[in-house]
């Protein structure tokens, strides 16, 4: 802007002598027109370098952000998977805790024909002495009423009420993520497929003490 003003003002001054006018023109030409100098600069090379650099930066930036975004999707899906696996683990471990509650153990033991003996007797190994007075167990004749309730066990079958192993569809542990299937099945099936459970279904012989 100031340059503009100066030029306009300069052209309006008429009272300058020729020598100074000439000087001014010479200086002007020397400064502006310097073709040798211009030619010395490899302008195209610089321009290309700069452009290439910018291009590289843009491409790198794009690749990086694509990479990060890809990672974000992967992270997100893995986190979802972890949440699902966590849910499965929670659900299954809740089932384990539930079936290991005293009520469940007692009911199942009784269903298998076990009777509790409240008279402790010990055999001392050092001298073979029998400590205590052996008395045969007197179990209840029928099923003991479950007097200590547990609402979590509602609908939970006893081991003797399970379908025979063959009828249980083979569920492989590890597919738990797909676990829309009821978790109870995956907990109970190992019990049902265990070899000891086979005679259970057909019924154990009742102990003579009953």
């Amino acid at each position: 802007m100031s340059d503009n003003l100066a030029r306009v003002a300069g052209s309006d001054f008429g009272g300058l002598d020729a020598a100074s006018q000439h000087d001014r023109e010479r200086r002007h030409i020397e400064i502006v027109a310097s073709p040798g100098l211009r030619r010395a600069r490899p302008r195209v090379f610089y321009a290309l370098t700069a452009l290439a650099g910018m291009g590289a930066i843009v491409v790198a930036q794009l690749l990086l952000s694509v990479g990060i975004s890809q990672g974000a999707y992967e992270l997100s899906s893995l986190q979802d998977e972890r949440v699902e696996l966590g849910r499965t683990a929670d659900s299954v471990s809740q089932d384990v805790v539930r079936v290991s509650s005293p009520q469940s153990l007692a009911a199942n033991a009784e269903a298998l024909g076990m009777v509790s003996n409240s008279n402790p007797v010990y055999l001392r190994l050092s001298d073979g002495a029998v400590l205590g007075a052996p008395v045969s167990a007197s179990g209840p004749a029928g099923k003991t009423a479950a007097l200590v309730p547990n609402a979590l066990l509602t609908g939970m079958p006893l081991v003797t009420e399970l379908p025979p192993p063959a009828a249980t569809p083979a569920s492989t542990p590890g597919t738990g993520v797909a676990g829309a299937q009821p978790a109870t099945a995956s907990v109970v099936s190992p019990v049902a497929s265990a070899p000891v459970a086979a005679p259970v279904h057909s019924g154990l012989p009742s102990p003579t003490t009953r």
């Binding site: 809740q94 509650s101 005293p102 009520q103 200590v148 309730p149 547990n150």
Partner: peptide
């Protein structure tokens, strides 16, 4: 809250 042992 869950109470795995019920009334125990």
């Amino acid at each position: 809250r869950v109470y795995p042992n019920g009334a125990v």
